[in-house]
Design a protein around this nucleic acid. Structure first.
Length: 848
DNA sequence: AGCACGCCGACT
DNA sequence: GTCGGCGTGCTC
C-alpha cells in the first residue's frame, strides 16, 4: 500500500512551526513523493515550500482534517532519507530549526517562493443573464465598469497572469482586482517558483529513421535546397545527435527559420536539451598517476583501506608534517573507494580551493569530479550539485557545505587542513563540518580522514583520550617529508633587540640580508604579514578620533577603490574624510592593510625589487587570486607579500625564504585559541619554504620570542606545543577540557537587554540545578555545567541592536544544548518581549 | 514569516 | 459612520 500522508517541514523558520505538518498525498503524486521530496503545500492562507521528512499509510486518528500537497517540485528528490536524518540530528545538536538544517543542504537555487497567479474564477462563467451581472457590478462599485471589463478580458485572454504582472499593467486597479477576487470573478492560485531555471539549449535530432531521411534527400523541392543541406548535415553528424541548433546555424550559415521549416516537415525535431554549466569546461587537466608510497604513507593507507574494505565506520586523524604527502593518500584511498562502487567527499578550506588544488583531483579522476566553490555562480553551483545528485560523478570536492553532497553511498569523507576555522559556519545552522562529517560517516558506514600538519587541539585530544568523547579518531602519524628533504631551518628574530640597537624598520637586519641574498641568487621569497584581528581603519593622529559606524560599535573599514569607509557588519558607507570630522586636523591617516606599507618599504630598501601583493584589496576580483599566483610561479616577481592567504597550500619550487614580519600580532587577542592559531599559521607558512631541491629558510620576527607557540613552531614541534597548550587550557577550563555554548541576546534597548540577559543566566542556572548538574567545573566531577556572564559582546552593538552574551561551559553526559534551548524558548515566550533575539552558538570558534 | 482577523483614532 | 492603524494568533 502506498502511503497516503506525508509529514512536511515547512519553510517558515520560527519556533511555532518547527515541527512536521501532515498532508494528504493526492493519488497522482504517490509515485513521486519520497522522504526528501520538496513540495509546495497550502499553509494558512498561502502556499509555502517544504520538505517531506516522513510518510504514513493512514492519517493519524485525532481528526484534524488534512490539506493535500499541492505540487511536487523536483523529479528527483533533492534530499535522501539519510540527509533528512542528518538534518534532524543537526537541529538537535546545534539548536537550530529543522528547516534551516534542511535548507543548508540544497543549493540556494532550490529555495522557492510562492508566486501568485490570477485567472478567471467560477463566477465569471457565462451566466444565464449576463446583463444582470454587469448591472450588479455597476451598483456595487461606484467606479466605472470599463476598467473592470478590460481587466477581466485581459485575464480571460491570457488564461493565467502573475499577480505582479497584472498590477504592473493596471497600476491603479488594486482595489478593483481585490473586489473581483472577493466576488469570485477572478481567482488566485499560488505555485512555488525556483530562483533559478535549469539552463537549456535548443538541440536538433532526427525525427525519422536515418534511412528514410536519406531517401527523402533526393526528393527535395528545388526551392528548399537550404533545408536539404541542413538535413544532409544532420545525417553526416548522426553519431553526435542531438546537435546544438547553434552549431548548425553557424556551420551552414542558415537561418533558424530554415531549420524550423525542416522540423515542420517532420524530418527533424528541435528540443530543449538540459545542459550543465561546467565552470571548468575547456580546461585541460594534466593526468596524474598514483605515486609510490613510502613506509609511513603505506602504513596510513593500509589502515584506512582496511576500514573501507570492512565497510565500517572509522575516523582517522592523519597528522603529517607539511610536505609529507597527505594528498597522495587522499587520492589513493579515494581510488580504492571508487573501485568499491562508493563515492567520496573531499573538504578543503574555502581559501585553499584553488585551481591548483582542483587540478590534483581532476588530474587523477577526470570528469568524475564535481567542484563546489563559493565563487561559482548560483547556476553553476546548482549544476555541480545536480551532477552529484544524479550520480554523474563519484567525487565531490568543496568547502564546508560539500559535506552535504547528495551521494547515496558514501565510502570516504576527507577533511584537509582539519584545524581550519572556516569549517565552522558562523550563521545558522552554526555547524562544524567536522562533526557533521563524522556523524554522516557513522550513518553511512563510511571512513573519515582528518588531515593536518597541525591538528586542532580538540581532534588531537580526542585521539589520545579514551572513552566518552564525541569521537575517537585513530591517530596516523607521518613525521617525514615524502621527498626526503628536511624541514626548513627556522630562525626567530627578537624585534625588541632590533629596536634597542636603533633599527626602526619593520625588517630586521637578518631578514634584510636574507632577502638580499635571494635577490642575488634569483630565488624567491614569501613574506607574511600576520594581521589577524586588525583591519583598515581611519584614525586622526592629532586627537585620536577613529571613524566608527553610527549603528554598530565598530570602526569603519577604509576601501581604497571607492575611497569610502564601510561597516562590514551592516553595510553602512560614507565618503572618506579629508580632515578629521572631530577636530578638523589634516593629520588623519588611513591605516592600510599594512601590506602596502611593507611594499613601500621593500621598494625603498631594495630598488627595483618586483613584489606581488596579495590581500583583500588585490584579490577581490574573480580569478585575481589565481592570476597573481601564476605570475609568481612564472617568476615574474621576487617577493610574494600577503596576509594569511599566502600561508596555505602554495607550493613553489624556487621559494627558499619565508619571512614572517610580525608573528605575534594575534597572540594578544582575547581568544583562548590565540596561541593555537599562531602556532598553526607559523607552521603552515614555514612549510612553504624549500619543498623541492633547494633548501629553505624561515625567519620569524617577533616581539614575544619566548612564547611557546613561537618557540615550538620554530622547532617544528607539534607535540611540545600540544603539551604546553593543553596545560594552559586545563588551568583555564577551556576546550578540550570542557565544551562551550555561546548565547547572545540582542535588543534595541540597552537597559531592557541587560535585564533579560541577567534573567537568562538565572534561568540557565536554575534549570541546571533542577537537574542536579554541578555548578562548577573546578570540582572533579564527570558532569559539570557552569554559566559565565552576562557581559557585553565584544562588538556591543550591531545595526542599532545592543548585544549581550553569556557563556555556558559544560562537560559530561548531559544534554546541555537541550537545556539552553529550553531556557531560550522560555525567555522568548515571556510575551512582552518579542523584540528580543537570542542566538545559540554550540562549540563556538569565534569568541570576539 | 506572512496573512487575516479584530478593535480603536482621523477623515469623507 | 468608514478607512486603516498594527497588536494577536494561527498555520496540517
Amino acid at each position: 500500500m502506498q502511503p497516503q500522508v506525508a509529514k512536511v517541514i515547512v519553510d517558515v523558520p520560527v519556533k511555532d512551526t518547527d515541527r512536521p505538518f501532515d498532508y494528504l498525498i493526492p493519488e497522482s503524486m504517490r509515485a513521486w513523493i519520497e522522504i526528501g521530496s520538496r513540495v509546495g503545500v497550502p499553509f494558512g492562507h498561502r502556499t509555502v515550500q517544504g520538505f517531506v521528512v516522513g510518510l504514513q499509510d493512514e492519517p493519524s486518528t485525532g481528526g484534524i482534517r488534512l490539506k493535500a500537497i499541492q505540487e511536487v517540485l523536483d523529479v528527483v528528490p533533492p534530499l535522501s532519507p539519510e540527509l533528512v536524518k542528518l538534518a534532524e540530528w543537526m537541529s538537535q545538536k546545534y539548536a537550530c530549526r529543522f528547516i534551516t538544517a534542511l535548507q543548508v543542504m540544497v543549493p540556494t537555487a532550490l529555495k522557492g517562493k510562492a508566486e501568485r497567479y490570477i485567472s478567471l474564477g467560477e463566477a465569471s462563467e457565462p451566466s444565464p443573464d449576463e446583463d444582470e451581472y454587469a448591472g450588479s457590478l455597476v451598483r456595487i462599485s461606484s467606479e466605472p465598469t470599463e476598467e473592470v471589463r478590460t481587466i477581466t478580458t485581459y485575464v480571460g485572454q491570457k488564461g493565467e497572469v502573475p499577480l505582479q504582472q497584472l498590477s504592473r499593467i493596471f497600476p491603479d486597479s488594486a482595489d478593483n482586482i481585490k473586489s473581483l477576487l472577493r466576488k469570485g470573478i477572478l481567482q488566485e492560485n499560488q505555485s512555488i517558483k525556483d530562483k533559478l531555471q535549469k539552463k537549456t539549449l535548443k538541440a536538433v535530432d532526427l525525427a525519422v529513421d536515418a534511412n528514410e531521411a536519406e531517401a527523402a534527400l533526393d526528393g527535395f523541392p528545388a526551392k528548399a535546397q537550404r533545408q536539404r543541406e541542413v538535413l544532409q548535415f544532420v545525417l553526416e553528424m548522426k553519431d553526435l545527435l542531438p546537435l546544438p541548433l547553434k552549431e548548425i546555424l553557424t556551420s551552414l550559415q542558415v537561418s533558424a527559420a530554415t531549420v524550423k521549416g525542416l522540423a515542420d516537415k517532420g524530418f527533424i525535431s528541435i528540443e530543449d536539451l538540459e545542459v550543465f554549466r561546467d565552470p571548468y569546461r575547456g580546461r585541460r587537466f594534466k593526468p596524474s598517476m598514483p605515486l609510490e608510497l613510502n613506509d609511513e604513507q603505506k602504513h596510513a593507507y593500509d589502515r584506512i583501506v582496511d576500514t573501507l574494505d570492512a565497510y565500517s565506520h572509522g575516523v582517522f586523524l592523519l597528522h603529517g608534517v607539511t610536505g609529507s604527502g597527505k594528498t597522495e593518500i587522499y587520492l589513493q584511498t579515494i581510488q580504492h573507494c571508487i573501485e568499491q562502487g562508493r563515492q567520496a567527499i573531499v573538504l578543503v578550506p574555502e581559501i585553499a580551493l584553488t585551481p591548483q588544488m582542483v587540478e590534483r583531483f581532476k588530474g587523477r579522476f577526470g570528469d568524475q569530479v564535481a567542484v563546489m566553490h563559493s565563487r561559482l555562480s548560483g547556476g553553476e553551483r546548482y549544476d555541480e550539485w545536480r551532477k552529484i545528485r544524479e550520480g554523474k560523478v563519484t567525487v565531490a570536492i568543496g568547502a564546508r557545505s560539500a559535506v552535504f553532497a547528495p551521494f547515496e553511498h558514501i565510502g570516504l569523507i576527507i577533511m584537509d587542513e582539519e584545524h581550519e576555522t572556516s569549517y565552522k559556519q558562523e550563521e545558522s545552522p552554526k555547524y562544524h563540518a567536522r562533526d557533521v562529517a563524522v556523524k554522516r560517516a557513522q550513518q553511512q558506514g563510511a571512513a573519515v580522514i582528518l588531515g593536518s600538519a597541525t591538528p586542532s587541539l580538540e581532534s588531537y585530544y580526542a585521539s589520545r583520550s579514551v572513552a566518552d568523547e564525541q569521537f575517537a579518531p585513530m591517530l596516523l602519524e607521518m613525521k617525514h617529508r615524502a621527498l626526503g628533504n628536511e624541514l626548513p631551518a627556522v630562525e626567530i628574530v627578537d624585534m625588541r633587540e632590533e629596536l634597542k640597537e636603533g633599527n626602526r624598520s619593520m625588517f630586521s637586519r637578518s631578514l634584510h640580508q636574507a632577502i638580499e641574498a635571494r635577490l642575488e641568487r634569483q630565488e624567491q621569497t614569501v613574506l607574511l604579514l600576520n594581521r589577524r584581528g586588525y583591519s583598515t581603519f581611519v584614525m586622526c593622529r592629532s586627537c585620536g578620533f577613529v571613524a566608527g559606524c553610527p549603528e554598530c560599535d565598530i570602526s569603519l573599514t577604509y576601501h581604497q577603490k571607492s575611497n569610502n569607509l564601510r561597516c562590514h557588519y551592516c553595510g553602512y558607507a560614507e565618503p572618506a574624510p579629508e580632515v578629521c570630522p572631530d577636530c578638523g586636523s589634516e593629520h588623519i591617516r588611513y591605516f592600510g592593510t599594512g601590506t602596502q606599507r611593507v611594499e613601500e618599504e621593500l621598494a625603498k630598501l631594495f630598488p627595483g625589487i618586483r613584489v606581488i601583493r596579495m590581500d583583500v584589496d588585490t584579490t577581490t576580483e574573480k580569478g585575481s587570486h589565481e592570476k597573481l599566483l601564476k605570475q609568481f610561479r612564472d617568476k615574474k616577481a621576487d617577493v610574494l607579500l600577503g596576509t594569511q592567504m599566502v600561508a596555505k597550500g602554495l607550493d613553489f619550487p624556487d621559494v627558499t625564504l619565508v619571512g614572517v614580519i610580525t608573528a605575534d600580532s594575534a597572540l594578544n587577542l582575547p581568544d583562548f585559541r590565540a596561541g593555537e592559531k599562531t602556532f598553526q599559521l607559523l607552521t603552515q607558512v614555514a612549510g612553504r619554504a624549500g619543498r623541492h631541491q633547494l633548501p629553505g629558510e624561515v625567519m620569524i620576527q617577533s616581539y614575544t620570542p619566548d612564547h611557546y607557540s613561537i618557540i615550538h613552531a620554530s622547532g617544528h614541534d607539534y607535540l611540545a606545543f600540544v603539551r604546553d597548550e593543553l596545560k594552559h587550557r586545563r588551568n583555564l577550563h577551556y576546550p578540550p577540557y570542557c565544551r562551550l555554548i555561546l548565547v547572545t541576546l540582542t535588543h534595541e534597548q540597552l537597559p531592557l537587554l541587560v535585564r533579560m540577559a541577567e534573567n537568562m543566566v538565572s534561568v540557565l542556572q536554575g534549570k541546571a540545578r533542577q537537574r542536579g548538574w554541578f555548578g562548577s567545573l573546578d570540582r572533579l566531577t564527570a558532569d559539570a555545567f557552569d554559566v559565565l556572564g552576562p557581559v557585553a559582546s565584544p562588538i556591543p552593538r550591531i545595526k542599532n541592536r545592543y548585544r549581550f552574551q553569556c557563556m555556558v561551559k559544560w562537560r559530561g553526559n548531559i544534554d546541555a544544548v537541550g537545556l539552553v534551548r529550553e531556557a531560550t524558548e522560555q525567555l522568548e515566550d515571556t510575551a512582552h518581549n518579542q523584540k528580543l533575539q537570542i542566538s545559540i552558538d554550540v562549540d563556538p570558534q569565534m569568541l570576539m
